[in-house]
Amino acid sequence: MGRRDVGILHPGSMGAQVAAQAVAAGATLRWLPQGRSAATRERAGDIGLRPAADLRELAGACEILLSVCPAAAALDVAAQVADAGFRGVYVDADADAVGPERMAEITDVFEGGAVTVVDGGIAGPPPREPARTRCYLSGDDTAVARVRDLFEGTARTPFVLPGPVGRASALKPAFAAYNKISYALAARACALADGHGVLDDLVDLAGHLLPDTPLGTPEHLATAGARAWRREPEMREIAGACRAAGVSAAFAEAAAATFGRWEAHKDDQAVTAGELIAELGRGTPSGTSPGRKGLPSR
């Protein structure tokens, strides 16, 4: 192909660590600084990413493009890449759940072009430590092998799911349905307890019997508030995947509604679990409740 570089769209907290793993493994990574924040630019510089002037330059310089973006933007990003004339392996490797139907739409964007789509799904935290973050890959065997080799031996452990595009994007929503909906369910349970003045007691009970769950560690709910703007559309993706499988989408839709209540807290690192819980309940005339003051804050 004559091109050896890898491009990444767009290196947020997850994408930056994904890029760092590829750089550590010897790849040359390019990215688009245009329109990105100062913090993102600094992060990219620390990793050693090389800037491209625009998407067309990035598309022309790279043989592999990794898309690590919110679920709601996945299709638009793919369309932009197609318009830029990319010819190579396009990897939708979102940290958020993108369902099989959405992956089919992404594949259709490149239909008739010289692009091979690899279906990817990241499970786990941003890859910093070995064996904690997995990336599942499915699709064309040759293209999947190239992406697998890019991350072989890194903290972003590749797992190949033999079969067509759609298998990896089926596994990720199934996992996220449990992992992320559990945060919405815990928040609702806390709001219920808060409304009856027994939130402290619920936190104590869950901490004793369910210590490794969002209900047992409600301080972790604060992170859900800052990420709710991503979680709401992700829950919609999960709901679609449920319907396609003939499974009720009610839990996913309810979780989407819960995260939707917190969208104003986008990237708000100061919001507390108590504040998020209060927003789900009716509260009290005084604006405080016996349980809310006992919740840990960030």
Rank of each mutant, 00 (worst) to 15 (best):
A176W: 06
A176V: 13
A176N: 15
A176K: 01
A176R: 06
A177N: 15
A177T: 11
A177C: 11
A177I: 09
A177D: 11
Y178T: 13
Y178S: 11
Y178G: 13
N179P: 01
N179K: 14
N179R: 13
N179V: 13
K180S: 03
K180R: 13
K180M: 08
K180P: 00
K180F: 10
K180I: 03
I181S: 15
I181W: 09
S182G: 11
S182R: 14
S182T: 09
Y183R: 09
A184Y: 01
A184R: 12
L185E: 06
L185R: 11
L185H: 06
L185F: 14
L185A: 15
L185N: 01
A186Q: 08
A186M: 07
A187Q: 06
A187H: 02
A187F: 00
A189C: 12
A189E: 03
A189L: 15
C190Q: 07
C190G: 01
C190F: 12
A191P: 02
A191N: 02
A191Q: 03
A191M: 08
L192H: 13
L192C: 10
L192I: 13
A193T: 00
A193W: 00
A193Y: 00
D194G: 09
D194N: 12
D194L: 08
G195F: 10
G195C: 09
G195A: 06
G195Q: 04
H196A: 11
G197S: 07
G197P: 10
G197A: 09
G197Y: 11
V198C: 08
V198Q: 06
V198N: 00
V198I: 15
V198D: 00
L199G: 03
L199C: 11
D200A: 15
D200K: 10
D200H: 11
D201I: 12
D201Y: 10
L202I: 04
L202M: 12
L202A: 07
V203A: 15
V203S: 14
V203C: 09
D204A: 12
D204F: 02
L205S: 11
A206Y: 00
A206L: 05
A206C: 11
G207R: 02
G207I: 03
H208V: 00
L209A: 12
L209S: 11
L210H: 14
L210P: 02
L210I: 03
L210Y: 14
P211K: 14
T213G: 07
T213Y: 00
T213S: 15
T213H: 07
T213R: 10
P214Y: 04
P214M: 08
P214F: 09
P214G: 05
P214E: 07
L215I: 15
L215G: 02
L215H: 02
L215D: 01
G216F: 01
G216M: 06
G216L: 05
G216I: 05
T217E: 13
T217V: 08
T217C: 05
P218A: 09
P218R: 14
P218H: 10
E219H: 14
E219V: 13
H220F: 12
H220W: 14
H220M: 12
L221F: 09
L221R: 09
L221T: 04
L221K: 11
A222R: 14
A222Q: 06
A222V: 04
A222W: 08
A222E: 02
T223S: 13
T223G: 05
T223W: 08
T223V: 07
T223C: 03
T223Y: 08
A224M: 14
A224F: 05
G225V: 00
G225S: 06
G225H: 02
G225E: 00
A226L: 03
